[in-house]
Each structure stands twice: as structure tokens, then as C-alpha cells.
């Protein structure tokens, strides 16, 4: 059974966030190897902390090195509104991602300081929706739950990987999105409630859940143990731990 983590990050930080870090991509690969995680989606925190182009460049370069070693990794790029030409224009985004082994994008309007509105994001989100490009919408990256609801209302077919790091993430905030939007899936990296995985699997199907750890900010074992010990079928476990991410990437041809 392959284990692919949809929520990995690396890159040095000048402060104490996260509390225990993986400064380099090599540190990340070593740590992931201890947990026998086979690969996944990886974001370089420099896209938020240093420079968007700088961090996106690191992600592309490092993922290439992992692929050369036979490790299944895809990068995650930050995207900006197209009016300053700092990230690929919407019409060029898919090709640039494919060329650079990028499997998903994310937005962080809070750190990147723009107004998250249809004016700033509309064209990009249209292209993302049309090409089935996975987009990470997470409160961890400065996207409020209200904004996630607004985006999903405007782009209901979006392949959204949603996660919520509110103090007590819970069903009342997440279930409506997972239930009502066909292509919205839940990144489990901040899911921790007892019986949560079984409950969501029975309500929405295992296809709606993606294994993610939030490593290195969070312990990789927590979600791994929850999925391993969940009272679900082996087929469902296999989907959650890796197959779903594989399917999403292959559906997008990324």
C-alpha cells in the first residue's frame, strides 16, 4: 500500500514557526523516510517567508531531485493575482506546472497581501477549475473559512483540497463543503476528533479524504495512526492513504 502525504512543507524559518522544522528538502526526505511515507505534495515555505518566485523555484528544483531518486513527489506553488506578472499567467499556469512537476497550487492572500476577490482571483480560479488543477484552500495559509465558502460558491467544480486549522476544526464548518461540492476533498492533517474518519467515510465516501500530516509542524504519526486504526475497509484505507491523491493528480494530468 502506497502512502502519499498531501501536506508536507520544508524551508528554513527565521522565527520559531514551526516549533520543530525541516530546514532543507533533504531533512524532509530523511524524516519522511522514518515514517515510511512514500511521497506526496510538498510546499516550500520560502514562497511565504522569503519570496513567491524564490520559494516556487525551490519547490520545482527539489521535487526534480526527488523524482530523480525515484521518490513520488509533486511540488505545490503559491499563485498570485495575474496583474503583476510574478507567477505564471492563468493561461500558462498548467503548462508551467506540468513542466516543473508541480501537482497543486495554493493561495495565501493574507501573507501575500492582496484583496481576495473575484477581481484578483477570478481568472486564475477559472483556469484552475477548468483544468482540474488541485488547489489547496486552508485556513493555515491565510484563507478564512468564509473565503473558502465564497470561492466554492463561485467555482463549484473546483478540485479543492480543504483543511481547517481552527482551534477545534469540526464537522459544522467542514461537512457542508465536502458534502455539497463534488470535487472538494478534505486534507486530514488537522482532523483529530474521535471517530471522525469513520464518520466522514460513511457519510461522504473514502474518495473525499486525503491523508496529510502537516509535517514538520505536526507529528506524522497522529493521522497515520488514526487512518491505520480506523474501522474502515482496507480498500477505503488504501484510497485515503495514497490512491486518492494519485487519482487526483492523474485526473489533472499533472
Amino acid at each position: 500500500m502506497k502512502i502519499y502525504d498531501c501536506h508536507l512543507t520544508y524551508g528554513a524559518s527565521v522565527n520559531i514557526q514551526p516549533y520543530k522544522n525541516c530546514d532543507t528538502f533533504s531533512d524532509l526526505l530523511d524524516a519522511v523516510d522514518v515514517s515510511e511515507i512514500d511521497g506526496g505534495l510538498v510546499r516550500c515555505r520560502y514562497s511565504d517567508n522569503v519570496g513567491v518566485r524564490y520559494g516556487n523555484g525551490f519547490a520545482a528544483r527539489d521535487v526534480r531531485s526527488a523524482l530523480d531518486k525515484g521518490i513520488f513527489m509533486r511540488g505545490v506553488w503559491a499563485v498570485l493575482p495575474p496583474y503583476t506578472d510574478e507567477t505564471p499567467k492563468p493561461e500558462a499556469l498548467f503548462d508551467e506546472m506540468k513542466k516543473n512537476n508541480i501537482g497543486a497550487v495554493y493561495i495565501n492572500p493574507s501573507v501575500h497581501r492582496y484583496v481576495p476577490d473575484m477581481l484578483t482571483l477570478g481568472k486564475t480560479l477559472s483556469v484552475i477549475e477548468e483544468n482540474k488543477i488541485p488547489i489547496i484552500l486552508s485556513t493555515e495559509y491565510g484563507v478564512s473559512m468564509e473565503l473558502i465558502y465564497k470561492i466554492m460558491r463561485a467555482f463549484p467544480r473546483l478540485r479543492a483540497l480543504i483543511s481547517d486549522t481552527d482551534c477545534w476544526p469540526n464537522a459544522r464548518r467542514l461537512y457542508p463543503l465536502i458534502s455539497e461540492y463534488e470535487n472538494a476533498v478534505l486534507d486530514l492533517s488537522y482532523v483529530m476528533d474521535a471517530g471522525g474518519i469513520e464518520d466522514m467515510t460513511s457519510r461522504f465516501g473514502a474518495e473525499k479524504l486525503l491523508f496529510g500530516t502537516g509535517f514538520p509542524a505536526r507529528y506524522p504519526g497522529s493521522v497515520l495512526a488514526m487512518v491505520r486504526g480506523a474501522d474502515i475497509s482496507e480498500r477505503e484505507r488504501e484510497l485515503i492513504l495514497g490512491k486518492n491523491l494519485e487519482n487526483i493528480l492523474s485526473e489533472a494530468n499533472l
Partner: peptide
């Protein structure tokens, strides 16, 4: 609030 397995993991 937290799954037992979350802590075990």
C-alpha cells in the same frame, strides 16, 4: 475531542 489514536500516533 481527540481520537485516542491521534495521541498514540
Amino acid at each position: 475531542w481527540f481520537s485516542t489514536l491521534h495521541g498514540v500516533g
